[in-house]
């Protein structure tokens, strides 16, 4: 057996392949299709302090090689999560990160304080990059100073693994990542979806009620690959890459360019068992190529 383990913060991943937030449900649905003992893990849907009913329909639309979504962080709020969802999360034998999405500056503190006394998960992925909510959220991502007000105290609130998920829509993401590293974050998830839109020609209206939506899927992979490369030059903490990954070659590209782990989003919707399959394929690849550890691939780009 070759070594597929990677470490992010205090969390050891059995393989560097995770299900991305928003596409992994709350784990229960994913469990029907994957053997959790043999995958890296997953990130839950976004949890917000208060319930969010989510956006009006339509919420999704296919584009050429991609998917626009405008789900709007639908969830029942943190108290419901702790009472009704967290207990089942505890039973899953893979790494589990909670995606938490703050709207106000003190939301993050409140959420971590409520969650941190509980066990059954490995860490947090702080999400300030969802393009589908009209206020809060992504505005923290638009300036490094805004983001700093939010992230500076996070480390003092928890010993669990702390990730920050950033948007490719803002140049500030690179500086925010540097500051997050300085404030003790364990990793950066990069990238969230790209901001896009679509127009209904017949009605001459935006397709989505929110006007904009997040673009994901194969169409964005080259963009994310470049962004992850740029990010790898700016920070030393692990990058968890996301953006249009659909097969082993995509994963290897991201690892070579500098990511420590990857997240599968859109393709997980299409092939819900893909975490298990790609983890197996990665193992076979290491064996075939006689590579003793996946760590030998990470950052192995020859320039």
């Amino acid at each position: 057996m070759n070594d597929t383990l990677v470490k992010i913060g205090k969390t050891v991943l059995k393989t560097p392949i995770l299900g991305a937030s928003g596409c992994s449900g709350w784990g229960e649905e994913l469990k029907c299709f994957n053997d959790f003992k043999n995958i890296g893990g997953f990130v839950t849907k976004s949890i917000t302090l208060n319930e969010k009913i989510g956006n009006e329909m339509p919420r999704i639309m296919e584009t050429y090689g991609g998917l626009l979504n405008s789900i709007g962080l639908e969830n029942k709020g943190i108290e419901y999560f702790i009472e009704n969802i967290l207990p089942s999360l505890k039973t899953f034998e893979c790494a589990k990160f909670l995606n938490i999405a703050p709207f106000e500056a003190d939301d993050l503190k409140k959420m971590i304080e409520l969650l941190d006394c509980h066990s059954g998960f490995d860490g947090y992925e702080v999400n300030i990059s969802c393009p589908n909510v009209t206020h809060g959220g992504i505005s923290f991502n638009s300036s490094a100073d805004e983001a700093e007000t939010l992230i500076k105290s996070a480390r003092s609130l928890t010993d669990k693994t702390l990730l920050l998920k950033l948007s490719p829509a803002f140049e500030s993401s690179f500086e925010i990542a540097e500051r997050a590293e300085a404030y003790g974050f364990d990793g950066i998830t990069f990238t969230n979806t790209y901001i896009g839109t679509a127009v209904n020609v017949k009605e001459r209206k935006f397709v989505f009620k929110n006007r904009q939506a997040g673009l994901s899927g194969s169409a964005i992979k080259p963009l994310s690959l470049m962004n992850v490369y740029k990010m790898s030059k700016r920070i030393r903490i692990p990058i968890i890459a996301a953006g249009g990954i659909k097969n082993l070659d995509d994963i290897l590209e991201f690892l070579i360019i500098g990511a420590t782990a990857v997240q599968i989003g859109t393709q997980l919707l299409i092939e819900p068992d893909i975490l298990t399959r790609l983890s197996r394929e990665l193992n076979l690849y290491l064996e075939k190529e006689n590579i003793e550890s996946v760590k030998k691939i990470i950052g192995s780009l020859k320039e």
């Binding site: 994913l30 989510g54 999704i60 639908e74 919707l269 819900p272």
Partner: peptide, 22 residues
């Protein structure tokens, strides 16, 4: 409804009920 996953992962294929929940 147009569906992304069809298995409950994404919340993309919702309808609204009269109590404003999906």
């Amino acid at each position: 409804e147009i569906m992304a996953c069809g298995v409950g992962l994404c919340n993309g294929c919702v309808v609204k009920y009269d109590d404003n929940t999906f």
